[in-house]
Design a protein around this nucleic acid. Structure first.
Lengths: 214, 214
DNA sequence: CAGAATAATGGACGATTGTCCATTTTGTGA
DNA sequence: TCACAAAATGGACAATCGTCCATTATTCTG
């Protein structure tokens, strides 16, 4: 029975406006220079709003981290939809998704890197910075285990542990390289390197271009 | 003809004291909270020294980045000494060195990560943040090329490009993981993952424990 | 030893930080 | 339409930021 709340879908609360402005600022000028003045100017709102909605700047930063983490997860699960049943296809979907423009873009990578660094000295941010890893790692490990078993490895658990860890680390490195050189980064090359790695361990499931179709 | 300059080897200029204090602060509390007050307190010097020796804080930060970069390089070259002639041994030395406690420790990793992030918005820092990569990448690419040729790959240049890029990215990822979980990080596991990757591409030169001795 | 040059001090300075509240504006229900 | 509640404003505030300079201490030179 709200009045004209939903006259339009794009009606967003000022709370969310502040979060978006904060993430924009972090992406563009970094956490160091993201001041209250900077945020409220980008948001087009008044100074007191941060205190009203978040009880101070630190809380706003944490909420922005939570939101960014949720966004990443949502895209991840969209990427892997339909591939969950086949471990090789699942890994392929994760890799391609994580290197695709919806995940790997200047804004996301900058935000991710800034929060990562801040997490070292901020428990509140650390909570939402770690979740990304945990969820992704579990997905990869389970898929790697299934794959190792299927290919008849002697110790599938060990392989799964090493490979999920290695894939995570390699993706990390790709993101870092993208952050440092966004204009020269080559997505195709990045994917090829990932699949070369995968085919080295599971030559029956992968080649340099991805999953081998039967 | 200096007076009592070298009465003891550990006599260091206050310029260097400031750089060390800056790096300590960055490692422990991060770049955001590394203020002039914080630095001079750690250095045990007076407020004006930063302006006297560096003409302002920004310059001090850049000089600290340069020094950290030089330190990293020095350790790198110590690590690979004697292994330059054999490409497989050279890669092994780089990998083991980069994952060893002289390079990969809490202080170094924190500093490296902070400068990496700052480089995005600071050209002065970017210069010394990039050099590490450039030098390391060249070393790896040349070794990878020699190895690819020796193992008779069809396109050694392509292999060398992919592998040097992949090795860099994988090491990046290892460093990041160490930064996030320094207490649970497993150096042996990290090395094994690196060598598993290498043996996937060059099974005649590497196995999971390192270079294969003839 | 005297004099000059250099190194070091520590506080003053304006600018900017984040917090918070008195006030005004907007929205809602009687 | 009126009265009340909620949302939003924007400036005051103390604290801290980085800069810079007048002053003092130290070192080097002749």
């Amino acid at each position: 029975m709200k009045t004209q709340e939903n006259q339009s879908e794009e009606r967003v609360s000022n709370r969310q406006v502040l979060i978006n402005a904060t993430l924009d600022a972090i992406a563009e000028i970094g956490l160091i220079r993201t001041s209250v003045s900077e945020i409220i100017e980008r948001a087009g709102l008044s100074r007191g709003m941060i205190h009203l909605h978040f009880n101070g700047k630190p809380n706003l930063i944490v909420e922005a981290a939570r939101y960014a983490s949720e966004q990443y997860y949502q895209i991840l699960h969209e990427n892997i939809q339909g591939a969950e049943s086949n471990p090789a296809r699942l890994i392929e979907a994760i890799v391609r998704g994580d290197l695709g423009p919806k995940s790997l873009n200047t804004r996301n990578v900058s935000i991710w890197y800034e929060f990562r660094g801040a997490a070292r000295n901020d428990a509140g941010i650390a909570a939402y910075s770690d979740t990304r890893d945990a969820g992704l790692r579990d997905l990869l490990r389970d898929a790697a285990f299934a794959l190792a078993e299927r290919e008849g490895a002697s110790d599938p658990a060990a392989i799964a542990r090493d490979m999920s860890f290695g894939l995570m680390a390699l993706l990390e490195g790709m993101w870092t390289d993208f952050m440092l050189h966004p204009q020269s980064f080559d997505r195709q090359m990045a994917e090829r390197i990932m699949f070369r790695y995968l085919s080295g361990t599971w030559p029956n499931s992968f080649d340099v271009s991805g999953v081998i179709s039967p």
